[in-house]
Design a protein around this nucleic acid. Structure first.
Length: 637
RNA sequence: GCUAAAAUAGCUCAGUUCGGUAGAGCAACUGAUUCGUAAUCAGUAGGUCGGGGGUUCGAAUCCCCCUUUUAGCCCCA
């Protein structure tokens, strides 16, 4: 009997009943069959040897597909667990999922792993790969499954088993002698895993709960070719070089001090210069977009935080109160209540809306010591915050404006690849269903109207409203969080915000909370990592380094410096009594974008010899001419 | 916060195994050199070994507490 198989391009082919996805792939081309990792039949993920018995839609997924990657890595995780249990028979296995980049498996092992174990395990895995062990699926009724793991003493699997709902089939995957409780699907055999690398190990609590036992987690990654693995490992190396903590020290941008406290940033002159340039640009753009700048204090009375609900829901993240005249004051973890108080300082009419308050608002949050990380996670930081207060009718237009604003802002900093997420109503939430629907819809309509590709993060919104997150992707495929645009139904209610409408009656406004850069600290860290310290010219603290050939040309160097200053170009002169090669080397290491080398020839012709960072000698230019070039590059952002 | 590791000169790091008066390179400073596209030569100075307590005749080294950092867990701008 024949069945119809429909492909993603809507073409249909006929196959005999019981055909497998692998056979279908083979019927198209051997190349496709070789590269197919897994498949979806009627939208459901299945093994490649799954028998298809009725007319179906099929998708053959190759490694470039994220789901296929997940299957590939998950199968490698099973393989690693097998290798570990062969080498360490007493070890109990917990869970081993694929993650964003690779996989891990958690093991219950009395003695923690050491470095040499990783190599042993990796070698054992390579042996098992060569044996071409098949991943075979089987299903068992619950009592038998229970018996199986009970005999093996796999207590963690027993716990997982109990969680599976009664109506779901309990499936297992076995390769060699290793059996694991698993929904699947998996690769056909271990030979499909071509290149593996175990990267690191660490402790991790069972189910992520610190009350539970600490397990040993091993992270690894695998690829269908050695080349891909090599690129991945190279990217990891490259990431180390770009580490903003390392570059921050090398380029003298910022530091932390043990005497000041953890997670509190000291911006050095170079970093502070960049911050100031960012802030100036940010303000200029906000004025153009009709935002009003506000400024609010760093502390507020307990009463305020009671009204806002922060003391009830957010106190764990807040610093302990300061007692002033018998009153409790708290350092602010957010700016919203202050902006709301400004809104409420007078009665508002619908004619005033939308009101858009913006502030570089410095907030303090008590982050757990273990969570601190360079500039990415600190305890005192400045949000580029704004609150848009508007009527229901204005929502769509305002959201659209914010999204466009966000993209134009981020693009000015050189970012190009964006990922956009629409996060919808979570299980626990406040606010009317109607408000949720209206605002979620507004977010969606705006994204679609602007033709922006986005993913829906179902239930990923904040409890107080839906949101859009904009993240950027760098050259190493790493993702960085930037903008967030969030509706807030909670605070507008709690603070009883209102405006008088056309009908002369009070109405509740909609409030949107948004940060385009996120926080200056995290944004700066991202900027450093993204550009690997080679910032766009307009941001560089020193745009031109003037390097006199010898002391004889200091006077001319000063003249050049003056001309640059007058044109608004930031420059410095290296007056040191060193050879030109030495000065160049240091300017290169400091990633100064342009070097002007000045000596006899340049002095005579009112010229500069220009060297561009990482590019080398560009030749001689008249000073005027090159200043024009620089100004044009700067103005392009 | 939890688990594991770490903190030695401005920076990068040796020295800790086995307790016996602190070391290198770069940077800094001084002098010589006045130079053409990624390191000129010579010399000088610089550290209560993160802080505190303990063990010991003697502690950078062993033990305890604290601070800070790192990798994870948990969480987030």
């Amino acid at each position: 009997m024949e069945i119809n198989i429909k492909f993603p391009d809507n073409s249909i082919r006929k196959y005999s009943q019981g055909v497998t996805p692998l056979q279908i792939a083979e019927s198209i081309s051997m190349g496709l069959a070789k590269n197919t990792i897994t498949s979806k039949v009627n939208g459901k993920l299945v093994d490649l040897d799954f028998s298809i018995n009725e007319d179906s839609q099929i998708e053959l997924l190759k490694f470039d597909n994220p789901i296929a990657k997940g299957v590939y890595w998950h199968s490698t995780a099973h393989l690693m667990a097998q290798a570990v249990q062969i080498l360490f028979p007493d070890v109990k296995v917990a869970i081993g999922p694929a993650i964003e980049s690779g996989f891990y498996y958690d093991f219950d092992k009395e003695i923690p792993f050491v470095d040499s174990d990783l190599i042993k395990i990796e070698n054992k895995m390579k042996e098992l790969i060569k044996q071409k062990l098949e991943y075979t699926r089987s299903e068992l009724a619950e009592p038998e499954a229970y018996k199986l793991f009970k005999e093996k003493g796999e207590i963690y699997k027993l716990e997982k088993l109990e969680e599976i709902p009664d109506d779901e089939t309990i499936s297992f995957y076995k390769q060699g002698d290793f059996v694991d409780l698993c929904r699947g699907p998996h690769l056909l055999n271990t030979k499909q895993i071509k290149a593996i690398k175990l990267l690191k190990f660490s402790g991790a609590y069972w189910r992520g709960d610190e009350k539970n036992k600490m397990l040993q987690r091993i992270y690894g990654i695998s690829f269908p070719s050695n080349k891909e693995l090599k690129i991945h490992l190279h990217n990891l190396e490259e990431a180390k070089k770009r580490d903003h903590r390392k570059l921050g020290k090398e380029l003298d941008l910022f530091s932390f001090s043990e005497s000041i406290g953890a997670g509190l940033v000291l911006w050095h002159p170079n970093g502070a210069m960049m911050r100031s340039i960012i802030e100036d640009y940010w303000k200029e753009q906000h004025f153009k977009a009709n935002y009003k700048l506000v400024n609010t204090p760093h502390i507020g009375k307990a009463e305020l935080w009671e009204t806002s609900g922060h003391l009830e829901f957010y106190s764990e993240d807040m610093y302990s109160p300061i007692i002033v005249d018998g009153q409790e004051y708290y350092l602010k973890p957010m700016n919203c209540p202050f902006h709301i108080e400004i809104y409420k300082s007078t009665k508002r009419s619908y004619r005033e809306l939308p009101i858009k308050y913006a502030e570089m608002g410095t907030v303090y949050r008590y982050e757990k010591s273990g969570a601190l990380h360079g500039l990415m996670r600190v305890r005192g930081f400045t949000q580029d915050d704004a609150h848009i207060i508007c009527t229901k009718e204005q929502i769509n237009e305002e959201i659209e404006k914010i999204i466009e604003f966000s993209f134009s802002m981020l693009k000015a900093f050189g970012f190009q690849d964006f990922l956009v997420y629409l996060a919808t109503k979570p299980k626990k939430s406040v606010g009317e269903k109607e408000d949720w629907d209206t605002s979620q819809n507004a977010l969606k309509i705006a994204l679609e109207k602007l033709q922006i590709n986005y993913e829906v993060d179902e239930g990923g919104g904040a409890f107080y409203g839906p949101k859009i997150d904009i993240k950027i992707k760098d050259a190493l495929n790493r993702i960085w969080q930037c903008s967030t645009i969030q509706f807030d139904f909670n605070l507008s209610t709690r603070f009883k915000m209102e405006y008088i409408g056309k009908d002369n009656k009070p109405h509740k406004p909609f409030m949107v909370h948004r940060a385009l850069l996120g926080s200056l600290e995290r944004f700066f860290g991202t900027l450093i990592e993204y550009h690997a310290g080679n910032f766009p010219l307009w941001l560089c603290p020193v745009q031109v380094k003037i390097l006199p050939i010898s002391e004889h040309y200091e006077e001319y160097a000063k003249q050049v410096h003056e001309s640059l200053l007058k044109s608004g170009i930031r420059s410095e002169i290296d007056f040191r009594n060193e050879k030109i090669g030495f000065k160049i080397r240091e300017a290169e290491l400091m990633k100064n974008p342009y070097m002007f080398i000045v000596g006899q020839k340049e002095q005579e012709n009112n010229a500069v010899s220009v060297r561009k960072h990482t590019k080398g000698d560009l030749g001689s230019f008249s000073l005027e001419e090159f200043i024009e070039k620089l100004l044009s590059e700067i103005s392009k952002k």
